[in-house]
């Protein structure tokens, strides 16, 4: 009866496997629930406002080296946690639109947005407020760079932008304010539409990639964030024999902190938005720990801002179709 023995073994194994499967499903559900109540993952908080401990979840658009972001927001979270007396966690995001979406569904409470993504986020979450920005963000610029092989001369007056017609151009991320929205806007102001360029514009995904692609000559022109450009120049990461800056755009409002007021006030009590704001504004570069944070942000201090400062950006966004 070898058959029957083997068969029984098979049946046993089968039932064991199905048991393992079922119990594991139960287990994994159990695990999620446990973590929800103990470690307080952000999604549980939104649903469960009565829990005793709450976490403030901080996020940022992925405009820089993620490792640097991780480091930066690590120490910022520590600072905020100390100042505010609540636990603060940093939740990394890899996509501009994903940061907006996560803010909308309540996974992020406080986010470092670009101008465009900030406006998009505030449209999705009506109670959201812009509370602070860096000193440099009140007067931010984009830089147009060009490969030396394209023989484009530096531009001194916006009217000369028409000379870029017929060249190829790449932007950074689709939702980037400095790497896409404002450059496209200023081009349009001078009468240069995207269809005036040779082929379709590229979207390299990041400012660094834009520099590399223009350096390689794949595209004649690139539009990037001024801060990144100056930073890379200083670090010697740019081959200046191959790529050069040709024009700096007029100033506009850019990056800012946006907080989901309704959510945080509900979680931590009325007036918590102001507490966050003052904690950010209080950052002082004479304190060595806080100076590290400001240094990583590339700023001397944070200043107040408000939703109205971004009316121009919103108008531009609507014009270009990035805001519906």
């Amino acid at each position: 009866m070898t058959h029957s023995r083997r068969y029984r073994r098979r049946s046993l194994l089968l039932s064991f496997c199905s048991f393992a499967l079922l119990s594991s499903i139960g287990w994994s559900c159990g695990v999620t629930q446990e973590q929800g109540t103990q470690a307080q993952s952000p999604q549980e908080q939104a649903a469960d406002a009565t829990a005793s401990t709450q976490t403030l979840t901080v996020g940022a658009i992925p405009d820089q080296d993620p490792e640097k972001l991780q480091r930066l927001y690590g120490i910022l979270s520590e600072y905020l946690s100390e100042e505010l007396g609540v636990s603060v966690t940093y939740q990394p995001v890899t996509d501009y639109a994903a940061a907006v979406t996560a803010f909308k569904v309540g996974d992020l409470d406080l986010v470092w947005f670009g101008a465009l993504t900030g406006v998009q986020a505030r449209i999705q979450v009506p109670d959201a407020e812009a509370i602070a920005q860096r000193d440099i963000d009140a007067e931010f610029h984009s830089i147009f760079i060009a490969s030396t092989t394209s023989n484009i001369a530096p531009i001194t007056d916006p009217t000369e932008l028409v000379e870029l017609k017929g060249k190829t151009i790449t932007f950074g991320s689709e939702s980037s304010t400095s790497g896409r929205l404002m450059p496209q806007y200023f081009l349009a102001e001078s009468g240069v539409e995207l269809s005036d360029f040779d082929r379709e514009p590229g979207f390299s995904g990041s400012h660094d990639a834009t520099i590399k692609l223009v350096e390689a000559g794949t595209y004649d022109i690139g539009a990037i964030n001024e801060q990144v450009w100056l930073d890379r120049l200083a670090a010697g990461a740019v081959d200046e024999s191959k790529v050069q800056a040709i024009w700096e755009t007029p100033a506009y409002y850019n990056y800012h902190w946006v907080v989901n007021s309704e959510a945080v006030n509900e979680k931590f009590g009325e007036g918590f938005t102001q507490e966050i704001q003052s904690a950010l504004l209080k950052l002082d570069k004479n304190d060595p720990d806080q100076a590290a944070i400001l240094d990583l942000f590339g700023a001397d201090k944070f200043i107040e801002t408000e939703n109205e400062n971004y009316a121009q950006i919103e108008a531009v966004g609507r014009e270009i179709g990035k805001i519906q």
Partner: peptide
């Protein structure tokens, strides 16, 4: 087969999926 039977629950546990999110 044993590895499959074990890895399925382990992987679900490892990813710690937020099933509650489907509910909301």
């Amino acid at each position: 087969w044993l590895a499959i039977a074990l890895s399925i629950p382990l992987c679900f546990a490892y990813l710690d999926l937020g099933w509650a999110r489907i509910g909301r």
